[in-house]
Design a protein around this nucleic acid. Structure first.
Lengths: 192, 192
DNA sequence: GAAATAAACATACAGGCTGTATGTATGCAA
DNA sequence: TTGCATACATACAGCCTGTATGTTTATTTC
């Protein structure tokens, strides 16, 4: 036995401290917001020092960006996992929305992705994440529906609808109400 | 002749410095964001000192709140001024949307109200402003349409649609595309 | 396997910003 | 004109961010 502290490879150290920082950052950003979280408090929660933070991330914003990426990836994975077997497009959209709402129920996730994110990183950078999360799929579905309305604009607005519903649901609203409201809107749109 | 500086009443001084601070704050918050704007730079742009700022406002956030209130009031006034004479509800909604889009084209206003506001003041405080701006009117219109979908949830999601369209248009997107997309969605919803 | 190098941190420091406390001048009221 | 309140201006304490520098541990090279 060499020492009490376990001997770790550089790759291990790197991975472990990074994930510790990310977890603590997520926790702090959710509970106190990006501006309300100081790096001293953040690294203390992670059991690290500010030196480790600035070794792994360019600055506080870069750490925030990494947290958001992880959240967006988790949402995208959840939606992919709930891939619908049926062929009806409206139904596929609705089940996709369900998966989205469920994924966005993770504590603080809606606030991170939909409120803090656009303000800290700018709407344009968030738009990229949105696109990976489900924006492209949404546009494909609308194209398949052969609607008369312009697809990109309709997709963008529908996406905003999903987001506002997700925020409300994560805030305690009844998902069933938003689901039926969405169902009416989408079937009305498809029938046109 | 007493002095070179004009002699002003307290009420005048108060009003003038307040509006100078509000104008400079709006300018700075738009160009550099809330977090990116420091109070020293802000008061310099207003030709004032930090003492004046903290005499008139509780803190930087309170000044931001005052700026947002003015913006929201301007939008509400623009929408009220464009009150439609016709009786068709869908058409009234669309012309209301047009007025909203036009009002939100004021430089930086969309970013202030839709991006920075929710992050700085919290979504709940912004919801109040939204309601005064047009949320209540929207719910009344939906009720009059006698739609099958639940009204409050539908109104909330439609409001989010308007917001995302306003943000896109303020960012340079073609208003006509969003207008037709909205027209299709609203008429489809009304026909149900 | 020993020296050299690089990675992964830890510590120290320099600026800037926020909010408050205190000081001053001007309008107002009795 | 005397006292008071308002409207500021200045000074200060604390915190936070990003960088620069130091130290330890792993990895590579000879």
């Amino acid at each position: 036995m060499q020492e009490e502290t376990t001997r770790r490879s550089n790759a291990d150290r790197r991975r472990e401290t990074r994930s510790a920082l990310l977890a603590a950052a997520r926790e702090c950003f959710v509970s106190k917001g990006f501006a309300g979280t100081g790096t001293p408090e953040l690294v203390a929660a992670a059991g690290m020092t500010r030196g480790a933070l600035y070794h792994h991330f360019a600055d506080k914003t870069d750490l925030f960006r990494a947290v958001l990426r992880a959240e967006a990836e988790a949402v995208a994975a959840a939606i992919r996992a709930a891939a619908p077997p049926g062929s009806d497009i409206v139904e596929a959209l609705l089940s996709g929305a369900d998966a989205y709402f469920a994924a966005m129920k993770a504590p603080g996730r809606a606030r991170l992705l939909l409120v803090e994110g656009p303000a800290v990183l700018g709407p344009s950078e968030i738009a990229v994440l949105d696109d990976e999360t489900g924006g492209a799929t949404l546009r494909e579905a609308l194209t398949a529906l052969n609607i008369a309305a312009p697809v990109p604009e309709t997709a963008r607005m529908l996406s905003a609808m999903f987001d506002s519903a997700a925020l409300a649901i994560a805030d305690g609203a009844d998902p069933a109400l938003y689901r039926t409201a969405l169902g009416h809107l989408l079937t009305a749109l498809a029938r046109q």
